[in-house]
Structures are given as structure tokens and as C-alpha cells.
Design a protein around this nucleic acid. Structure first.
Lengths: 336, 336
DNA sequence: CCTAGACATGTTGACGTTAACAAGCTAGCG
DNA sequence: CGCTAGCTTGTTAACGTCAACATGTCTAGG
């Protein structure tokens, strides 16, 4: 069994001062004599004092703790955002509490649910598609500040997200500008708002340019699904330009095209979305839409802390723009 | 400012019972009359009661909280392990506290340090190369149970890790068994114990088979570094088999070989390490060593909880074996 | 020499929860 | 009818910290 660690009282006894003085030293307050401070510091070191954050949280009514709800950390975007949130929170003096939603077979709800039912966090950042919360039958406690990192506009929480629409637009326009007569789209799962946003923006961009809108192709974000769809696409010589909704699917697509002997970008141009580190090392190096995850994470934490501090808010959605990174997987269509 | 939520006292007042009875209901204790229980439950619902975990932690001297120290979540392995630890901890009723080590320019030490200086976690799982803790000048508080997920044997904490040596051995042997006269190695950074383990095992395996040991090639885990090294390798016709210390570097290596017109696996066979999801979609699909991250995470949490419970331990390192996944990037060498 | 004010230090109580103990009630049994 | 056993419910105190207030000490200025 764990024994309790030394408390303020132990330090106070050793240093021959009151607990309050120890508290003042621990919190770096002024109004403590230098000699006393040194004595207390020495005593702290001797007994190995560490403030008990539970007592602090109880006293202050704040946990300095942000809960992050996430389905799983497998996907690139989630991971990057989570990491960024962690960095930003730490820099702001908050700790991160991971609230993973377990798989159905492990009792989907329980984990996050029990955790949320307790007061242990000051606020929550939701990194999953918000509507999945409903499916999982998770009710967020009222009065707990929440920020959603997802472009769903259906929730009246503050929202921070990459500008999906702008990203899909510049990807599509890049291909059209190269001279392709239209652009095919390998979309993400329809349950994802990000995927839906990208798809809709792709459609709108084509429509605005007066280009025909080819049938939508659907994957599930995985490279394997990109490959599966790619096998079909590769057989169709009419396809000269594809915009994949993420880099992973683009990777599978590239493989399928290689297998079918279709050259990239000679026969087919491919654009991805994310700009994951390795996209520059795909074969050929992938032209893609770069997301600025650290910025998204930073803004999300910022928004939550703002929410924590004040009484009333008119929260305006924060949209972080993307940037097109042109590499070697796109080129003008072969003539004729 | 955040107002404090309703407490046991509020519920008790509304239900017309004592606080203790509310506590009993909240903790699902027996010895509460059904009628009373229902009344309390109703009152809880009405006021929106959520137990205050800080008060609980203070009372019980336990946080049900595991701190995870991690450098950054960018690398595939770290992420997967972190995710697995999160799932396992949640299943065991523990929450995860992320303790990111910030970059040098943000004040490397501070974040994790202050967090660790507070009692807020019952134990710690270290996901970084343990020796980096020294570099960051982080001192783990004494008496705090620690589990290290890293094969460094230099620390007397319980250790859980993938069996790096076995993984590197089966990778090397696979290539030799195909008939290659020797195997080149694209290693990870020398600061990494995992990289060192893999390298040493590669050397030993070659030596055991009486094969010459080619000069070591060094990358930094990134696909870009794999590409850089690959450019040199590709120029050397003597190279017919390469074992890369992770899949990312293998990806860069593949690109370099494609660029030089060396066919894979015709001219050069390549094996990776990790089996990240997309490895099956590389071009060509990558033969690689699969790590079982969920298992590693599960065992790490298990080890930590054991550590938490008992007084004294003789901790034996836990080694999780790997598995070779044969795909299309390896073949016998061209004859002649 | 006296007093106001600045500063150092101490005392008290409350944050919300629950273990330990105490008290009250009912049922069963000789 | 009296006594005990078993159950429900209540009271008290303590976990560690720190704001608020109280007290004590020293210095400067009239």
C-alpha cells in the first residue's frame, strides 16, 4: 500500500514555522523573510515535500486539468491535434486528462462516462466527431466548459477547426488549374463532418468552374480503403486527377495505380490532405494540403481557457487555414 | 468564474438524509433502504450532483491517475503505445495524465517537472528513452512507482518492452534465408535504446551466420532520413538486402530506390520494423516486423498497478515478442 | 518618546468526502 | 416481556491546503 507523502505540517514542524508560512513559500508569495524561506526550502527538500494537488484542487475549486475526449489515437490527424493540445495546455499550466472512448466490446461508454461524471477536470476538449457522443450515449455534464475540434456546426459549443472547405478548394483548384477537365474525389467516411465538408467543397469548386462532378468514391481514411477504391479507378482511363481526402488513402491509391501500370503524375495526378511527415517520401512525393495541427491545438486550448475565465460568451468558430504543398504527384494531363 | 458544483450536502438537504447516506448511495454500498436510495438518487439527479474527485483523492490518498511521460506523440510507436496505455488504464479504472516534455525553446523541463512535483498521480509510465530524463534533468520523486517502456536495462524500474532483439533477428534471418549474402542495416538514432538493441541484434545475427557486417547506416526514424541514406545505398550494386529499423525510414528508402531505378524486390529487398497500418500499402507492400503495441501498453499498466498494490517487488522485465509479416518487398537475390 | 504603517508570522476554519463509531429501530427467540 | 442480532441512519473528525483575519515586530517621522 502507498503511504501518504509528507505534508505541509511535516515541513512546518521541521522548519519550526507554521503551516501557513510553508504554504507561502511553496506558492512563492512575497512577505516571507529570506532566512525563513531558506529554512523552509531546506526542510522541504529534506522530507521530500510535494504539494498535494488534490487538497489544492479541493481548496481552490479548480483542477488545472483539461479532459480530452478522443476515440482512439490511431489516426494521424487526431494524434497530431492531441499532441498539440497537450503542448499548449502544458504551456498554459494545465494538465491533460485523456478520456478515451473504449471499443464497444470493452463497454464503450463506461470509461469516459464515469470519468465525466466526476468533477476532475475544469473543461473538456472534444476531438471526436461530436455526433459520436450521441451514439455513445454520453451526456456532458451541464455547466462544464467544452470546446469542440470539429467543424460540425450543430453544437453550440465553441468550435476550433482546420478550414476544411478552403483546403478542399485549393486542392481541387490546383488540379483544375493544371488543365484537368475535372477532378475525382476519394472521400472519407460519411459519418465524419470533416469528410463531408471536404466533399461538399470539392463539389462546389467543380460546380463554380462549370466542371462535371464525377461520382463520389468513399473510403474510411485507411490506406487499405484507398487501395481498394484505387483498383477501380485505375481501370478507368477517363480518370486523370484525383483528390484524396487524406494522405493515407492517397498512399493506397498510389499503390493501386502503380500496380495497374498507370504512371503518376503522367497518367493520373493525385492530391492528398494532411501533409503527414512521410507524404514527402511517398512515391512519387505527394502534393497535398497541409493542416496546421499545432495551431489548431493551441487555439482550442486558448478557447477553452477563455471559456473557463469568463461568464458569458459569444463564441465565434475559429478556422485555421491550410496551405497547398506542391510536390511531384501532380502535373498537367497528357495531351490527347 | 466557475461556481462550485453541488456537493453531497446539497443532495442530503434535498433528500432529507445525512451526507453519509448520500455518500453510501454514491458509492453503491449495501445497507441503504431501497426507498431512501431512490429518494437520494432522485435528489442527485435534480441538483446535478457529481462527486468531487479532488475531495475523494484527498480523503483516500489515491488519485486513480497514472501519469505518462512522453516526449512527443509524433512517432508511430509512441503514439500507438500511448493509446494502448490509455485504453488499458481506462479499463482498469485509472485515468491518464499526459505529461509532455516540452521542446527546449518552450522550457523543456518545466512542464513535466512542475507536474511531477505535485502529487497528482499514483504512478508513472515513462514512454521516452529513459536516459533522456537525465538530459532533461528531471528527477522522479522518490517513492513514486514507475514503469519504463523501453529496453534500457540501466534503470531499476520495472521494464516492459517489445523484444527488439528477437524482432531484429527474425528480420535479418528472413533476408539471409532468402539467399542474400549479407544484410545492410539502416539504424535509428544512436541515442535510442531500441535502435541500439536492433542494431546489435542485427550484428549478432550476421556474425552467427558467418556473414560480413556491412558499415552501419544511420537515420533518425524519419522517412526523410531514410531517403537520404537510400540515395547513397542505391548507387551501390553490392547492396541487395536492407533491414530498416522502422517502417518510416523504409518508406524513404523505397522512394530513393525507385528514383535510382533499382527495382524492389528485384534488385534490392527491404524489411521494415513496426508494421504501421499503411506498410501494407507501400509500393511495394512492405515486409516488416510487427510490434504488438496494445499488448505492451496493457502489460505496462498491469506492471504499474502491481507496483502500486504491493510493498516489495522483484520486477522481471517483460518482453513482448514480435512477428514477421512477409509481403512483397523481399525476394531472393537476382542470380549472378 | 509615541504612533502609524509596513512587514513577518501565526491561528482558524472551510473546501467535499468518507471511515469509524454511535444510535435507533425491528424482528426473532427463549 | 426482555434481550440480542442485524439492519438503517446519523455524527464526528480528518485528509492537506490556503484565504482571511489576528497578532507581533520593526522603522520612520513628528
Amino acid at each position: 500500500m502507498r503511504r501518504r507523502g509528507p505534508s505541509i505540517a511535516d515541513v512546518a514542524r521541521l522548519a519550526g514555522v507554521s503551516g501557513q508560512t510553508v504554504s507561502r513559500v511553496a506558492n512563492d508569495r512575497p512577505n516571507v523573510d529570506t532566512t525563513t524561506r531558506d529554512r523552509v526550502l531546506a526542510a522541504m527538500r529534506e522530507v521530500g515535500y510535494r504539494p498535494n494537488s488534490a487538497a489544492r484542487a479541493l481548496r481552490n475549486g479548480q483542477f488545472r486539468n483539461i479532459g480530452v475526449i478522443v476515440f482512439e489515437l490511431s489516426s494521424f490527424g487526431n494524434t497530431r491535434t492531441f499532441n498539440a493540445v497537450g503542448q499548449a495546455a502544458t504551456a498554459a499550466g494545465y494538465a491533460i486528462n485523456l478520456i478515451p472512448l473504449l471499443d464497444a466490446d470493452q463497454g464503450k461508454v463506461t470509461g469516459a462516462f464515469t470519468r465525466l461524471q466526476e468533477q476532475a477536470v475544469d473543461g473538456i476538449i472534444i476531438l471526436i466527431e461530436a455526433h459520436q457522443l450521441d451514439e455513445a450515449e454520453i451526456h456532458l455534464p451541464e455547466g462544464l466548459p467544452v470546446v469542440v475540434v470539429d467543424s460540425s456546426a450543430h453544437y453550440d459549443y465553441p468550435i476550433v477547426d482546420t478550414d476544411q472547405a478552403q483546403g478542399a478548394r485549393i486542392a481541387t483548384e490546383h488540379l483544375l488549374d493544371l488543365g484537368h477537365s475535372t477532378v475525382w474525389h476519394l472521400g472519407g467516411p460519411p459519418t465524419s463532418f470533416a469528410a463531408t465538408r471536404r466533399r461538399r467543397s470539392w463539389e462546389e469548386t467543380l460546380a463554380a468552374r462549370g466542371c462535371p462532378v464525377p461520382p463520389l468514391l468513399v473510403g474510411d481514411w485507411s490506406a487499405a480503403s484507398g487501395y481498394a477504391v484505387g483498383r477501380q479507378l485505375a481501370a478507368d482511363p477517363a480518370v486523370t486527377a484525383v483528390f484524396a481526402a487524406n494522405d493515407e488513402m492517397a498512399l493506397g491509391l498510389l499503390r493501386a495505380l502503380h500496380e495497374e501500370g498507370r504512371s503518376v503524375p503522367g497518367d493520373v495526378s493525385v492530391v492528398g490532405f494532411d501533409d503527414q511527415e512521410s507524404a514527402a517520401q511517398f512515391w512519387p512525393p505527394l502534393t497535398t494540403v497541409r493542416q496546421f495541427f499545432p495551431e489548431v491545438g493551441r487555439r482550442a486550448v486558448e478557447a477553452l481557457i477563455a471559456e473557463l475565465g469568463a461568464e458569458e460568451h459569444h463564441h465565434r468558430p475559429v478556422s485555421v487555414p491550410t496551405e497547398l504543398v506542391i510536390r511531384s504527384s501532380t502535373a498537367p494531363p497528357r495531351v490527347g
